[in-house]
């Protein structure tokens, strides 16, 4: 019973981390229409940043691995540094790339994510390459000694951070900033002809996405306690895409919902083991079930785009009445009537 609760707790934590990624992509794609096919790069940079910032330095009392770099700083510094580094990478990439037409941006970000991964696996002094970094400090660990209790505590902390991210994303979407981004998404030339600096707007959206993904990387690395370059493959990016499209692009609540559905589906396929035939196949070919999971995710992308392009919760519209408009309507109409 307690084991199941702990399992559930770690799944919800994972879903919340995916929610942060999805909200980041949603600002980029859902609002600004930017096809970011390299989101995983910001996630990876956030993860490694947070790990390195919090690792105890070489020779210190807490030091117990083979890594050589560590700053021994507390976890909150790690989260903030992860967000900053994710945002900085997005700024670096986006400063030039956001000018590219839609599908060119998709290719450029896809290629850049691969460059980041190649760099991370080659710069072993920083990332320990194929060995990975383990025993990454876990925050609050000393406060909550029981390991199940710790999972729940971590869940609560993740929920608080993701909740704050959700509130910010919602505000952004409803604000004049979000509305301008949506205009850029609909028609960049028309938006520019109304005096907007569309490249700057797109760059801001891109950087916000990078920050969200960086923070997500930090939360993820500390929940697992280890990090390895091979974890940051392209399929992570496209799982987040699935969460966004499934939940409803442009709607922060929707993409959180989409992330929970994604994690439920993905982890649900673990239980295929219980099907007699499947477990036999799994014995013959150990990659069978993990592969099946990605087949399901790939198929869902195809199906969602085809049958439900607006997702579960479509984008919210700004209504006239919400703006407190219309109160002067009669006056306006009256002054116009004689002309």
């Amino acid at each position: 019973m307690w084991g199941w609760l702990a399992f559930g707790s770690s799944l919800v934590t994972l879903a919340l981390i995916y929610s942060l990624l999805a909200m980041g992509l949603d600002v980029q794609y859902g609002l600004a229409g930017l096809l970011d096919f390299g989101l995983v790069a910001f996630f990876a940079v956030g993860a490694f940043t947070s790990a390195i910032v919090t690792l105890p330095p070489l020779g210190s009392s807490g030091y117990e691995g083979n890594y050589t770099i560590g700053f021994g700083l507390p976890f909150p510094v790690g989260v903030v540094a992860a967000g900053v580094m994710g945002g900085l990478l997005a700024l670096l990439v986006g400063a030039t790339a956001v000018r590219l037409r839609g599908d060119y941006l998709a290719i450029a970000t896809f290629a850049l994510a691969t460059i980041v991964q190649i760099t991370l696996s080659n710069e072993t002094w920083l990332t320990r390459g194929q060995f990975g970094i383990s025993v990454i400090p876990q925050p609050l660990r000393t406060l909550v000694p029981s390991s199940n209790g710790y999972l729940h505590a971590y869940l609560v902390m993740t929920a608080v951070i993701t909740g704050a991210g959700w509130a910010v994303a919602r505000r952004l979407a409803k604000s004049p900033f979000g509305r301008a981004l949506r205009a850029v998404r609909e028609d960049e030339i028309a938006t520019r002809s109304l005096g907007k600096q569309t490249s700057a707007l797109k760059l801001k959206a891109f950087v916000i996405g990078g920050i969200y993904a960086g923070v997500a990387g930090s939360l993820w690395v500390h929940s697992i306690g280890g990090v390895h370059v091979n974890q940051f493959v392209a399929i992570i990016t496209f799982q987040v895409w699935l969460a966004v499209l499934l939940g409803g692009a442009g709607n922060a609540t929707g993409v959180v919902l989409g992330s929970f559905v994604l994690v439920a589906l993905r982890e649900g396929t673990r239980f295929l083991d219980l099907v007699p035939g499947a477990s036999n196949l799994g014995r013959v070919n150990p990659t069978f079930l993990p592969s099946l999971r990605f087949v399901v995710i790939g198929m869902l992308l195809v199906v969602v785009v085809r049958v439900a392009p607006d997702g579960i919760l479509p984008e919210r519209r700004g209504r006239r009445a919400d703006a407190g408009a219309g109160s002067r309507e009669s006056v306006a109409a009256a002054t116009e009537a004689p002309s």
């Binding site: 509305r179 998404r185 609909e186 028309a190 700004g318």
Partner: peptide
């Protein structure tokens, strides 16, 4: 902007 309302 087709995906926005007239008001927006």
């Amino acid at each position: 902007f087709l995906g926005l309302t007239v008001w927006e």
